[in-house]
């Protein structure tokens, strides 16, 4: 295909993304450099105060805590998701599409409904508490809802399908003879996994981890519903700045830093995927 033809084919997508996403985003981000008006409007005088405020210990702390929550969710999701993907890839080939379908199924249902379903499960009179009472556990149970742990569990649950898919791709393409070669050369199953299978499928884990982290750190629905406003994540803070405090310039400044973090991670992810190719069965 010549260059003109590919430019022509790309044009609609580029125009669409530029007009409807890049431009509005840049406009919002530009607000970060202006002052907040007295009654919530915007006063068009240049300032770096908003960006400076992001690095105030209060907000930097929210960033760090969000990163910790998102990082924990990413690690847990990768461990669970990799194990699931490994098991699926080890199944007979004809069963694999169906298993993947089931793994991804929750993802196709409404995010809000899924998250509300957790509240039904976890609240003070929820199914788990009732179940515990039924099998005879008495006394005060630790709170299941509105804790940081609950938010992490909710995030892992939401983004697990991403990780399963991301890890399944390289695992399913591994030439089984490579692991056999390791076994043949005297390695145990564990050594084979640690030195051969895992390094060869690391790009998949990196993709999955970055997805979970990026989607979690900016998430505001799960912390709001499952965290119950008990603690703030950066997504909630941005949400509050735009919709409650009516401080668009500061909300824009927070968003700008968040987007920068995400872009950096996605860039690193792309690098990792680029480097970690090879070792698959070549298409005949």
């Amino acid at each position: 295909m010549n260059q003109r033809a590919s430019t022509a084919l790309m044009a609609p997508a580029l125009a669409w993304l530029t007009a409807l996403m890049v431009v509005p985003c840049l406009l919002i981000l530009a607000l970060a450099f202006f002052r907040r008006g007295l009654y919530g409007g915007i006063e068009y005088t240049f300032t770096l105060e908003n960006l400076a405020l992001v690095f105030d210990p209060l907000y930097a702390g929210i960033f760090l805590n969000s990163a910790r929550v998102a990082g924990t969710a990413a690690i847990i999701a990768c461990v669970i998701g990799y194990a699931a993907a490994y098991a699926i890839a080890a199944m007979p080939r004809r069963h694999q599409p169906m298993l993947l379908f089931f793994a991804v199924l929750p993802f196709w249902s409404n995010y809000l409904i899924r998250t509300y379903a957790w509240i039904v499960l976890l609240n003070r009179e929820g199914l788990i508490v009732q179940g515990a009472r039924w099998i005879g556990i008495e006394g005060e149970l630790p709170p299941l809802l509105y804790t940081q742990g609950t938010v992490i569990v909710g995030l892992v649950y939401s983004y697990l399908p991403f990780v399963i898919l991301a890890c399944y791709a390289p695992l399913s393409r591994l030439n089984p003879e490579i692991a056999e070669a390791s076994f043949d050369l005297g390695a145990s199953s564990w050594t084979t996994f640690r030195r051969v299978t895992l390094p060869m499928t690391l790009p998949g884990i990196a993709v999955g981890a970055v997805f979970v982290f990026v989607l979690s750190i900016g998430n505001f629905v799960t912390p709001a519903l499952l965290g119950g406003g008990q603690f703030q994540m950066i997504g909630n803070t941005i949400y509050a700045q735009f919709l409650t405090a009516n401080d668009w310039p500061f909300g824009a400044a927070l968003s700008m830093v968040l987007i920068a973090i995400m872009m950096g991670l996605l860039f690193l992810q792309t690098l990792a995927v680029e480097r970690g190719s090879g070792g698959r069965v070549r298409d005949a």
């Binding site: 056999e180 060869m200 970690g276 090879g278």
Partner: peptide, 13 residues
């Protein structure tokens, strides 16, 4: 006993 695989099965990384 060692086996040399038809695909060679070298460790690509």
């Amino acid at each position: 006993v060692n086996l040399m695989f038809q695909s060679y099965a070298l460790f690509p990384h």
